[in-house]
Write a protein that binds this DNA or RNA. Structure first.
Lengths: 245, 245
DNA sequence: TGGATTTGTTCGATATTTGAACAACAAATT
DNA sequence: AATTTGTTGTTCAAATATCGAACAAATCCA
């Protein structure tokens, strides 16, 4: 008699088993290091984790064994190359299928092109391609988090779901009305939303057995032929999907 | 007065404190998933880890909490987007400084350009840029491991050290004679070494407080002006280093 | 050269993890 | 349909891995 009237089988995140304390702390250490601006001393890391220094030391040594963390000459710690190796496995098929499409788009349109996947409240950028002559990079490096409610990729992802499906999978997050329009025309648009003067367009990608994703471009707002660009994105998304099937 | 001949105190890796069992297993789980070709069931993962299924279950739940792991509709597990976020922190300054140089090189030379950092026995690729019209990608995705003894980046990294320094920092690994030549001319070359018909050139990058790295190009062997390309690499490396200082 | 700061080690107490057994569910199978 | 087989998810006492204080040894800095 566990589930009283359990809203069943959407693979609910019940989370009843308690997470591993040591493993949580180790991951938390990596998260702290990833968002730190400079290498940290062990004492600083211990303080940030809220654990005894000797506990941090053991965690650190373990992470170091796997190259997830390296130390400079003074013993300060920073993220290690092993993390790049692990990240290579994230949606690997999507990454490889998207890369040629992204280079194509970036260079024919002269815009920054990228692929992002949905993760809880955010979109996470996985691959980006800059155009040939990019004066300033438009700050869409791989690993960047971006609120799913802001920008074209989020709208594109919403456009693959009905409002009910969205409410079920993203409880609490509003459903943007632009999603309906995006579903109709095949791509989503966002202007001056993240940064004033910047626009982005995105088309959704459905990954079998994976998280919803989107392919997008970002550019300095100009009088472009938005429809043409959007359709190019949708075509790229379709080719990527067909390759993933 | 550091240590003239005293080879000690190079921050020896004595490793006497025992690593955390749970954390090790969690990381090992991620490594298994990253190199797996398809999503794994919990039982498969438990088997690969050599632990009881319920232990794997707890680890898995913890990793899932941090988005380092996601599950498909059938409950099978695969690497999650959180890993991309963590990887963004790896040599971040190097990544951002290198990106414009890489796009420049890739498009003017029409070759795949990338940056790799030294990690134990390997070089790990961090950032890559494909040229405009890359027929087939030359398989240098970020996160790729590559033996440090094979290819131009390894030689370039060796060229920044004397044979004694290399022996101290990479015990057991041979010192390639090409390193001396590379040190003289400022870049390293490798032909038909990794894959027959492919060549690579590389110049070393010294990252203050970080691991030795290299910027490199790979291309289909042709009668190029190797010296010109090599000098372009060395110039890029110098600009990157000056930006990191 | 000293003194202050940080890293690294050891070891008993205890809180965390472990693994077997069980329950629930889904998909083939007969 | 009922049965089998394969999963995932839960619980709890026992075992042990982890915790944190106190100590030793480097390293930095004025």
């Amino acid at each position: 008699m566990m589930s009283p009237s359990a809203a069943k089988s959407l693979r609910e995140t019940t989370a009843t088993v308690s997470p591993s304390q040591t493993l949580s702390r180790g991951i938390q250490a990596l998260e702290i290091l990833a968002s730190a601006e400079r290498p940290l001393t062990i004492a600083e890391l211990a303080g940030a984790l809220g654990v005894h220094r000797s506990v941090a030391y053991r965690i650190l040594r373990t992470l170091e064994d796997h190259s997830l963390l390296v130390r400079d000459d003074a013993g300060r710690v920073q993220p290690g190359p092993g993390l790049a190796v692990l990240a290579r496995g994230v949606s690997r098929d999507l990454q490889t299928a998207a890369l040629p499409e992204l280079t194509q788009l970036a260079n024919t349109l002269n815009m920054t092109a990228f692929v992002a996947v949905w993760d809880h409240q955010d979109c996470v950028t996985l691959v980006t391609v800059e155009p040939r002559h990019s004066a300033a990079t438009l700050a869409q490096h791989p690993g960047t988090r971006h609120p799913v409610n802001t920008g074209a990729p989020g709208i594109a992802i919403q456009s693959t779901m009905s409002e009910e499906q969205w409410a079920a999978r993203a409880p609490g997050l509003p459903y943007r009305p632009e999603a309906a329009e995006a579903r109709r025309i095949g791509y989503a648009a966002s202007h001056d939303e993240v940064i004033a003067g910047l626009s982005s367009l995105a088309a959704p990608i459905q990954v079998p057995g994976g998280r919803p994703a989107a392919i997008a471009v970002v550019y300095i707002r100009r009088e472009q032929d938005q429809a043409a660009v959007g359709e190019a994105l949708a075509a790229s998304a379709a080719r990527i999907e067909s390759q993933l099937a």
